[in-house]
Structures are given as C-alpha cells and as structure tokens.
Design a protein around this nucleic acid. Structure first.
Length: 177
DNA sequence: AGAGTGATGGGCT
DNA sequence: GCCCATCACTCTT
C-alpha cells in the first residue's frame, strides 16, 4: 500500500493511463479503484492543451503528479492527473471508479445510492473534488492521492476509440477494466 | 440497453 | 455566440 510519488506520473500519458487501472484514488475517508481512464496529449484536438497554455489549463503544462481539475457543462467537475514532463501538456482523465470505502459519504454527496462514481463528473461529486483542489500535488499529505494496493493493472484492458473529433484519425484512447 | 433532451456556466474563436 | 473530456431523466426497443 504505497502512495505513488509524483515522479511516477512523469511518463507518456497513454502509458500512465494503462498503469493507473486498478490503482486506488483516496480522498480522506473515501476511496475507489480506478476502472476507466482516458489519455490526453498535446496533439489531440480534444485535449485542453491542444491550443496551447491558458490560465485555465496551466496546471496541465506543469509538473507531473499534480491534479488538474476543470469545470464543464456548467455543473460538473472533471479530475485529471498531469503526466509527462513539464511543458508537455499531457494528462489522464479519471473516468470511472469502483467505490471501496466511504460509500455512505459518497452517497450523501451524490444524493443517491447507486451509480456513485461511474462517470468523470460523478466521481468528482462523490469524492468532493472541485476547483479548490486544482493544482494540488498527489503526494502531498491530505488532499487526493493515488495508492498501489498490489493489484496489478489488467493484462488486457478493454480499449476504446473516441469518435466525433473533426480532425483526422484520433490517437487518444480510453481504457477500461 | 439505448436514444433523445434539458439544465447550466466558463472559456474560447 | 457557440462549444463543451456531462448527468439524469424520460421514453422507446
């Protein structure tokens, strides 16, 4: 059971994404196993970093192992883990978790007892992630960290392509357990 | 199980 | 203005 150090994330986003599967996200008493992720790189038209650095996406261009949180659709937050080296503009979006601990608290935050963390906006609501956590380091005390409990990444994760991008063939992928 | 749709607000062209 | 890396609700197979 070790908290992943920030340097662990300083590799290419697609690689970090696959290895994040089956790791555990911990926020205070709540935790969940990562079962779906998506990698975003600088050359991906769907990536926030595609059009360069702005005030909003600055964290994504910073040091790996930090949390990039953004607000979208007028009501949802999404959490990403910065990867690569400084300036790369790479991140991995946390898309879904399997709830492990603190289920009651997550249910209270969600206002329901089912489908607590099966979507990027849902897991942020369940874990209480909002813009105040944007930019925090994942190996700092408190806040959010990601731990390895010994469960290996799946040998053959389900891979999915993304569609709906106007530019040509899309490289970013989505991995599921 | 899957398709359609309204809610809602900040960021970018 | 228009676009979203969304969600939940509703109605249809």
């Amino acid at each position: 059971m070790r908290t992943l150090p920030r340097r662990w994330f300083a590799r290419a986003a697609p690689l970090v994404a696959v290895e994040l599967l089956n790791k555990v996200v911990v926020v205070a008493d709540c935790s969940g196993r990562i079962v779906e992720v998506e990698a975003y790189t600088r050359d991906d038209p769907a990536s926030h970093s595609f059009r360069g650095e702005t005030m909003r996406n600055a964290v994504m261009f910073g040091e790996a192992g930090h949390l990039y949180v953004y607000f979208t659709y007028g009501m949802h937050y999404c959490a990403n883990v910065v990867s690569g080296e400084i300036g790369d503009g790479q991140a991995v979006l946390l898309r879904a978790l399997q709830p492990l601990t603190g289920v009651e608290e997550m249910a209270r935050r969600r206002g329901r007892t089912t489908n607590l963390t099966d979507g990027p906006g849902k897991l942020c609501q369940a874990l209480g992630i909002d813009l105040t956590m944007n930019g925090i380091a994942l190996d700092d005390a408190g806040g959010l960290h990601i731990v390895d409990d010994g469960t290996p990444p799946p040998a053959a994760p389900r891979v999915g392509t993304r569609v709906g991008i106007t530019k040509g063939a899309d490289t970013p992928w989505r991995w599921r357990v």
